[in-house]
Design a protein around this nucleic acid. Sequence first.
DNA 1: TGATTTTTCGACCAATTTAGTCGAATTATA
DNA 2: TATAATTCGACTAAATTGGTCGAAAAATCA
Lengths: 194, 194
Amino acid sequence: MHGEKRDVAHKILLAAVKVFDKYGLRKTTMRDIAESAGMSKSSLYYYFKSKRDILSSVVKQESLTLTRKLHHAIQQDISPQQKLREYVVTRMHLLFELSVYYASLSEAYLEQYSFIEQEREAFTAFEIDAVSKILSEGVLKGIFRGRDILAAAKTIIIIMKALELRLVISKSMDELDSTVDTMLEILFHGLETR
Amino acid sequence: MHGEKRDVAHKILLAAVKVFDKYGLRKTTMRDIAESAGMSKSSLYYYFKSKRDILSSVVKQESLTLTRKLHHAIQQDISPQQKLREYVVTRMHLLFELSVYYASLSEAYLEQYSFIEQEREAFTAFEIDAVSKILSEGVLKGIFRGRDILAAAKTIIIIMKALELRLVISKSMDELDSTVDTMLEILFHGLETR
DNA sequence: TGATTTTTCGACCAATTTAGTCGAATTATA
DNA sequence: TATAATTCGACTAAATTGGTCGAAAAATCA
């Protein structure tokens, strides 16, 4: 009749995201997750074998959401400039919502949950590929200068990561879009042919 | 030569605010505060007698900042409408920054730190007074209708508190100002004479 | 209906973390 | 140099942590 096992597991993950977002990974306890999911702590272990397991599932889920939406954002039939803008802005807004990627963790903690770093590295690889493709397209169309695409892509990603940090600190998205625009304005006039 | 006792105490409070903001009151430990302040945990007890003491000081400090800035915001020589707008917007932005008032705490936790509720109540009293004065001024100038000022003030404050909740949930201030404007538009056309 | 399976939870555990203490070391002051 | 102000490492008792287990409840099946 009602909820299957997978639905409850999903409900738990949603609850986990909520509290991860609130307290960060390190500070979130199984009790917090259970409370947020509206069930007993023991019941969590019926669906997940450990806290690490829940964490891992959340990370994988968020990572999937992130890449899927970013992929979709640059699939549109728009100019390379617009694509780059779309990518950066979408990325900003998504990362603002997704909790796990923002968790600033101590090295010791990351060691324990190594899959987070792994997932992050995989995401970086995706990013370099995605941005490189946008740049290549721009070069082919004679819009961007065709020097070292990989280096250019990496630079853009570094700048975006720097923006992430500012975002976390300010906790506001007010100036974000204009900052992105300013940044991209500079970026475009440096990349475009004349 | 360098830092007096009061300065260090102040430094500790700033560090405390930083981590309270990050983890919330409940999740913040003395170790967190000490780390954030760049000193040993034991040293904190040279300046404050307990965690409760630090918490209390932070709450009082934030409460003071809040009321002082709000008071200043409505001291300007502007129309009652502008004053009301100024009050609401300032309040929103300040509460977004101040960590303590947003801490959603369980009743059990609030019991332990009762001074938080006390300070909140004092703040509400200040608000009712401040908003009432703005409304009164508007009535005197023939701009607002002069029915039940106290009830009107309380209504405005309730609406602002509802906005607070939305603010916490969305964690973004993007739509906030326009929401405030929309709300005040409705509010003004209900309050103004004709 | 009664038997069986799925799901939930309270009670419990060992290990860690917590707020807070204390005396000794360090630093500044006189 | 003596004295006072400040810092901290080592410690404790109490609370909290992730995780276990078996029994109660619900849901499903016969």
